[in-house]
């Protein structure tokens, strides 16, 4: 599956400190470590506390680009920061994210097209995250329609069905799994599906256990990509094993190693 490493985010203390002190090494190490652990792309978020998000995003991306050409997911809600980020990150980057209301899609999808970027689109609108699968799918269908309207290739569209923390919204997990399954039926070729995985385990006691269990369930429902922590080896092992059991990789005794040799 397509893994977007979540560790370069200003909400983590080491990253916010690195941004404040302009410590390139910390960011570059985080980039390399995540890629070595199996990340296919890197999420970059300046964090909620950033006083200068535009400058911080620019610094983060140029710092990462000194050590890797891998795709960057520009993670921001601010339009100017998004445009700056996509322009610096280069073609094949990922716009993270747009929500499902028309006025957002009308701005962000053309922006992604302009910079040849992929799009992560959340199944939520101004009124929030719907509790059931049907309402999520209705938003997903509107997102697909917008993508078609603006000529974004559907393979470059990732629908995020939004998983909420299990300790506050327990009924959401089954709805998310159902949405992932049915997203495949919207059109052919279908949009890809993605999850911001770690959200599911917010404030739970054993976060890694909750994360990897849900990832395996979502994979079985057809999930294509996840924003998660690739440095969690058990999470990655569970993902590789789930893909093996789904027949996506040929079995051999060293299948974990074989996957990592890719």
């Amino acid at each position: 599956m397509f893994i977007i490493g979540e560790k370069i985010n200003g909400m983590f203390k080491n990253v916010s400190e690195a941004i404040a002190t302009k410590n390139k090494l910390i960011i570059q190490e985080l980039a390399k470590k995540q890629l070595d652990a199996g990340a296919d792309a890197l999420d970059v978020n300046v964090g909620p506390a950033s006083a200068e998000p535009l400058a911080d995003m620019e610094w983060l991306i140029t710092t990462i680009r000194e050590v890797t050409d891998k795709p960057i997911a520009v993670d921001t809600t601010k339009l100017a920061v998004m445009e700056k980020g996509l322009s610096l990150a280069g073609p094949g980057s990922i716009l993270n994210s747009t929500s499902g209301q028309k006025e957002k899609l009308d701005i962000l999808i053309p922006l992604a097209k302009k910079y040849n970027a992929k799009v992560i689109a959340l199944t939520m609108t101004k009124s929030g995250v719907p509790a059931n699968a049907e309402a999520r799918l209705e938003i997903a269908a509107n997102i697909v329609a917008s993508a078609m309207e603006y000529g974004l290739e559907i393979e470059n569209l990732f629908i995020d069905a939004i998983i909420l923390p299990v300790n506050v919204a327990q009924d959401h997990a089954p709805a998310v799994l159902e949405t992932i399954k049915q997203c495949k039926l919207i059109c052919d070729p279908p949009p890809k599906t993605i999850l911001g995985l770690s959200n599911v385990s917010q404030k739970t006691v054993d976060r890694p256990l909750v994360d990897r269990t849900f990832l395996v369930m979502a994979l079985a429902s057809g999930l294509d990509a996840a924003i998660c922590n690739p440095l969690d080896k058990e999470l990655m092992d569970s993902m590789i094993t789930a893909e093996l059991l789904l027949g996506k990789q040929l079995y051999c005794d060293s299948y974990l190693e074989a996957y990592r040799k890719k």
Binding site: L250, Y251, C252, D253, S254, A258, K261
Partner: peptide, 14 residues
Amino acid sequence: DINLEKQLNILITD
């Protein structure tokens, strides 16, 4: 045996 085939290639490249 296709699974052993893959495994031997891994062992050799290791």
